[in-house]
Amino acid sequence: MECIVKFDVVHGQDVKSLRGLVFVDGHALPTTEQLTEMFKDMKYEVTPDRTEPMRFTPVQPSAGYDHIRIRELDTGEKKYTEDRDLKNIVSNLMPNPNRPI
């Protein structure tokens, strides 16, 4: 089965929206390794971000982009979309060492 990956490549204030394709077993979502390989095929050498599961950062510091963020994973029957409102609420509730309590 195929999974359409919709993602944004962030260049400072500029954002380029792109799509990629990953083949998965059944109706499963792609693994991090499959997504990394898809980006590699598209000439984006990235590594997954440890703090955000749908964000990938460039391997080379001299890359022409800041990061890649996956917006949507669509297998045709199942669709994963990041809920940014929920993410903002949770991030505001999490302790931040740079923000006074």
Rank of each mutant, 00 (worst) to 15 (best):
M1T: 12
E2V: 11
C3K: 05
I4M: 12
I4F: 11
V5G: 02
V5R: 05
K6Q: 11
F7H: 08
D8K: 13
V9W: 06
V9A: 03
Q13N: 08
V15P: 07
V15W: 02
V15H: 02
K16M: 06
S17G: 03
S17P: 01
S17Q: 13
L18V: 06
G20A: 12
L21G: 02
V22L: 06
V24I: 15
D25L: 10
D25Y: 09
A28H: 06
A28T: 10
L29K: 07
T32V: 12
E33M: 01
E33S: 04
E33L: 06
Q34N: 03
L35M: 13
L35A: 02
T36R: 08
T36S: 14
M38R: 04
M38F: 09
F39R: 01
D41N: 14
M42K: 14
K43A: 08
K43V: 05
K43T: 04
K43D: 06
Y44G: 01
E45Q: 05
T47F: 10
T47E: 14
P48H: 03
P48A: 02
D49A: 05
R50S: 15
R50F: 09
R50C: 08
R50K: 15
R50E: 13
M54D: 11
M54P: 00
R55Y: 03
F56C: 00
F56S: 00
T57N: 11
Q60K: 11
P61E: 03
S62L: 11
D66G: 02
H67Y: 15
H67F: 15
H67L: 08
H67E: 03
I68G: 02
I68L: 07
I68S: 00
I70W: 02
E72T: 14
D74T: 03
T75F: 02
T75R: 07
G76T: 06
E77Y: 07
K78S: 04
T81Y: 11
T81C: 12
E82M: 09
R84E: 15
D85R: 14
K87T: 08
N88L: 14
N88Q: 14
I89N: 12
I89D: 12
V90R: 04
S91F: 09
S91R: 14
N92C: 00
L93C: 11
M94V: 09
M94H: 09
P95D: 13
N96D: 13
P97S: 07
P97V: 05
N98K: 05
N98L: 09
R99Y: 08
P100S: 10
I101K: 15
